[in-house]
Design a protein around this nucleic acid. Structure first.
Length: 458
RNA sequence: GGCGACGUGGCCAAGUGGUAAGGCGGGGGUCUGCAAAACCCCUAUCAGCGGUUCGAUUCCGCUCGUCGCCUCCA
């Protein structure tokens, strides 16, 4: 399969170094509920992993939690609880959100606060090698200009960075571009002992420590949102390669585009967010995944209710086909092989999920058509489900959640009455029941096998 | 100011040097007591201007527009 690499800007054949594909994905800072932007990123990397596994690779997937940082501390102080406790709470909620989305758990979920000794080892070594320095105040900074390659990932020239002029000058830094490996503790903050006094790790160092510890060097794929390219991943490369003395530290850098809200990006700092919880309850996990996968992962995506609505409606077509009942035996069967081939070709091409989904839509149409013509569809339905599963789509029967509706027994009762009315050809009354249920968001469909109902969207 | 991405039908979104997947929506049918679902048919010339080419939406240049990063961020 081909993957495009942010570092080279090229799409090349992906060949893992060994039997195990080693993937590191940057995780969240748990200080609030995760939003659809996070969902987008993790759905994408989940699909990458699922596809690699589908193709027979063994994947080792590591994703961190940044459970100590300024925002966690600030939020915890507001609420009068310990930062670790706050982080723990939102880590749990994050894990629940991912489960709701059907995102496979990483094999390792390391937390920054539990990897401090490893980070100290690396920082110490970086100082010894001359790549980092400590300050009288107890901070440790990385010397950006020591590594000539700095800027290669984000395709920037070190000197251009300065012209941005938004870099906070710090009196203790040798160079404004230098970034913190270790931050001296301020009063009231959680801190760990270090050779430079009490403090806490800088943001970037945790990913270096964790990926080296849990995956080794180099790793096959490092993923994250587009925004992380600079400075986070750039800094990660600098630290990691300065520490190991080897290049490259990552063989393929994959970055997903941003989720935007109207004109702007969805972000916690702008406050224009939709939480994953809300998204799942409104559109369902399949709807959300369909939305995310409807465009190529590298491109930005815009959130709007209309678009989400369209995506979840579209995916329902697949669910209908997957759950259709075909003849017990048939002389001829629907052949799904060409659709499978198209699906695989699309996925092989840098995870072209829009085209892969298009193949599933065409397969669904073929299944529906075959059903109408009395052809066997079991085999092709299995293929549809198998491929949909690569995208993490569950394709539940339309009425799968009916049991959770409190009024279900009463609806069943009404439909029972309605059936008798229809048998008696009292269609006006029967239609009246259907109309009234529709007004209350319950859609009734009459099929050859009887009436089925489900909660209607919107 | 620097770096980068993008601009395809009413909306979302793939894609290719030889006249453009799929979904949503809309229109017309088939089926159905009716409706829904499903199926069939219809619904684009790819921001603008130049250039390269036998031929460009696809390559190059410019213009316009939108967006992102350069600061915490998936």
């Amino acid at each position: 399969m081909k993957l495009s690499d942010t570092l080279t800007g090229e799409k090349t054949e992906f060949i893992p170094q060994g039997d195990v594909v080693r993937i590191y994905v940057c995780g969240v800072t748990p200080y609030t509920d995760s939003h659809l932007g996070h969902a987008m990123s993790y759905i994408i990397f989940d699909v990458l992993r699922r596809y690699l596994e589908y193709r027979g690779y063994t994947v080792r997937h590591v994703q961190n939690f940044t459970d100590i940082d300024d925002r966690i501390i600030a939020r915890a102080n507001e609420q009068g609880i310990a930062p670790i406790a706050l982080a723990e709470r939102f880590i749990q909620r994050y894990v629940e959100d991912m489960a709701a989305l059907g995102v496979h758990q990483p094999h390792v979920y390391p937390r920054a606060t539990e990897e401090v000794p490893e980070m100290l080892t690396i920082i110490t070594a970086l100082i010894e090698k001359g790549f980092a320095y400590s300050t009288p105040g107890g901070d440790v900074y990385y010397r950006v200009r020591r590594l000539s390659r700095y800027g290669e990932l984000s395709h920037r020239d070190v000197d251009d960075l300065l012209s941005g002029a938004r870099v906070e000058p710090s009196t203790e830094k040798e160079d404004p571009l230098d970034f913190a490996l270790w931050k001296a503790a301020k009063p009231g903050e959680p801190s760990w002992d270090s050779p430079w006094g009490p403090g806490r790790p800088g943001w970037h160092i945790e990913c270096t420590a964790m990926s080296l510890k849990y995956l080794g060097d180099p790793i096959d794929i490092h993923g994250g949102g587009h925004d992380l390219i600079f400075p986070h991943h750039e800094n990660e490369i600098a630290q990691s390669e300065a520490f190991t003395g080897r290049h490259p530290f990552v063989r393929y850098w994959l970055h997903n585009g941003w989720l935007q809200m109207g004109g702007e990006k969805m972000s916690k700092s702008l406050g224009n967010i939709v939480s994953i919880r809300d998204g799942v309850s409104r559109y369902g996990a399949d709807g959300l995944r369909a939305f995310v996968l409807s465009s190529h992962y590298r491109n930005p995506l815009t959130y709007s209710e209309t678009i989400l609505e369209a995506a979840s409606r579209g995916i329902e077509r697949l669910a209908v086909a997957a759950n259709a009942s075909g003849p017990a035996e048939a002389a001829e069967n629907v052949d799904a092989s060409s659709f499978r081939a198209r699906f695989l070709d699309a996925m092989d091409d840098d995870l072209n999920t829009p085209q892969a989904i298009a193949a599933l839509h065409d397969l669904s149409r073929e299944i529906n058509r075959g059903q109408a013509e009395g052809r066997g569809i079991d085999e092709s339905q299995r293929t549809l489900r198998e491929l949909a599963d690569v995208l993490g789509l569950r394709l539940p029967p339309p009425n799968a959640t009916n049991g959770a509706i409190e009024a279900a027994p009463f609806i069943e009762l009404l439909l029972h009455v309605r059936r008798e009315l229809r048998t008696a050809k009292l269609f006006q009354q029967a239609d009246h029941i259907r109309d009234k249920l529709a007004e209350r968001g319950i859609a009734v469909e009459d099929t050859a096998e009887g009436s089925v109902w489900k909660r209607d969207r919107g």
